[in-house]
Amino acid sequence: MNTTSLEAVREPGPDAAPGRVVLLTTSHRVAPGLLSWPAWQALHAADRVLCSDGAHPQLPYLREAGISVDEVAPTAGELVDACAGGHTVVVVASGEGEPTLTDGLARLAGSGRVRMPELELLPASYDLPGARLLDLVQVMDRIRAECPWSSRQTHLGLAKYGIEEAYELVEAIEAGDRDELREELGDVLLQVVFHSRIAEDDPDVPFSIDDVAGGIVAKLIHRHPHVFGDERADTPEEVKAHWLRTKAEEKRRSSVTDGIPLGQPGLALAAKLAARTRTAGLDVALPEGDGIGYELLGLAVRAEAAGIDPETSLRAAARAYRDAIRAAEGVETRP
């Protein structure tokens, strides 16, 4: 462990070269030691490498690479002095990014009384798309372990929330509210991560969020042979044909109705049955019967054949009906 004071490298003097400060930032979402080549070059070429956090996850890997790191927390003035004489000092930033130090450097630069070294921000590792999902998994893991309510939840107990969040997501989509859409997508994502974390505790058939993600990745690749394989699809209809064909091969179902959840709303259920029947090329007459149910079934089948989602259409009409009711009550219409 190096804890040398910065006093040893001060070289005061009005004519001394101002030197260079490199603030090296890293992402905790990337494995320690996986730094960019420019970062390694800057570290090896530096006159001093400083880090205020003795427990920084990068330190063991830097020292393994032969880089001497001084565990000190310099002030802005001390850092400027350490660079005098043309020295290059690399500061390995903590997770917070060293705001006190950078604010101090900004004040010195703004004062006009100090000859400032060259300042460079060098990201040593970057978050890949989806990196914040790792944060969500870690947060959920801690909540599951420490929260008295979350630690006792089961798949069955959370089932109703999954349904509620899905409906709220659809409502946000239909309302066209982008902020609400982002929030509701997060709530749906939470359900996936929560159930996956609960599944890890199963004594007989445990699985994790990685198993869930791995499964859907494999499914997407297999069902898109026109993207990941040699097949070709130039139209949405051809894509759908690929999807249905590969899905049928995977499921090996005996009926086109297999896999259709009967617990979904009635109009959506009727439309799904009609879509499966039409796609399979079956000619099935609608059952005859008395009552509004058979009439609604006929309307749903007609809507599906015309490319209209009957559930969405009915919700739009219901919202118009709600607005009419509120207008009759003298209540302001809301989105």
Rank of each mutant, 00 (worst) to 15 (best):
T4P: 03
L6N: 00
E11N: 12
P14V: 14
D15H: 13
A16D: 02
G19W: 02
V21P: 01
V21Q: 02
T25F: 09
T26M: 06
V30L: 05
V30Q: 09
P32D: 11
L35T: 05
L35E: 05
W37D: 11
Q41I: 07
A42N: 08
H44V: 11
L50Q: 00
H56F: 08
P60G: 10
P60T: 06
A65K: 06
G66M: 08
D70Y: 03
A76G: 11
A84E: 09
V90D: 03
A93W: 02
E96S: 13
P99S: 13
T100V: 14
T102L: 07
D103Y: 10
A106I: 11
L108C: 02
S111D: 05
S111L: 07
S111I: 04
R113N: 03
M116N: 01
P117F: 02
E118F: 09
L119A: 10
S125V: 12
L128N: 02
A131T: 07
R132C: 15
D135E: 10
V137L: 10
A145H: 12
C147F: 02
W149H: 15
S151Y: 04
S151D: 12
H155G: 15
I163Q: 13
Y167I: 14
L169M: 01
I173G: 00
E180T: 04
L181T: 04
L181W: 01
V193K: 00
R197M: 12
I198N: 03
I198L: 12
A199Y: 01
E200T: 11
E200P: 03
D202H: 14
P206N: 06
D210V: 14
D211L: 08
D211C: 12
G214K: 09
G214W: 10
G215A: 03
I221A: 15
H222T: 15
P225E: 08
P225D: 05
H226P: 02
A241R: 15
H242Y: 02
L244K: 04
R245N: 11
R252W: 03
S255G: 05
S255N: 08
V256M: 08
G259M: 03
P265M: 01
G266T: 15
A268W: 00
R276H: 12
T277H: 01
T279F: 13
A285V: 03
L286D: 04
L286S: 07
E288I: 00
E288S: 12
D290W: 02
Y294L: 12
Y294R: 11
L296K: 07
L297A: 06
A303V: 03
A303W: 01
E304Q: 08
A306W: 04
D309S: 09
P310M: 14
S313D: 14
R315K: 09
R315D: 07
R322Y: 06
V331E: 13
R334L: 15
P335K: 01
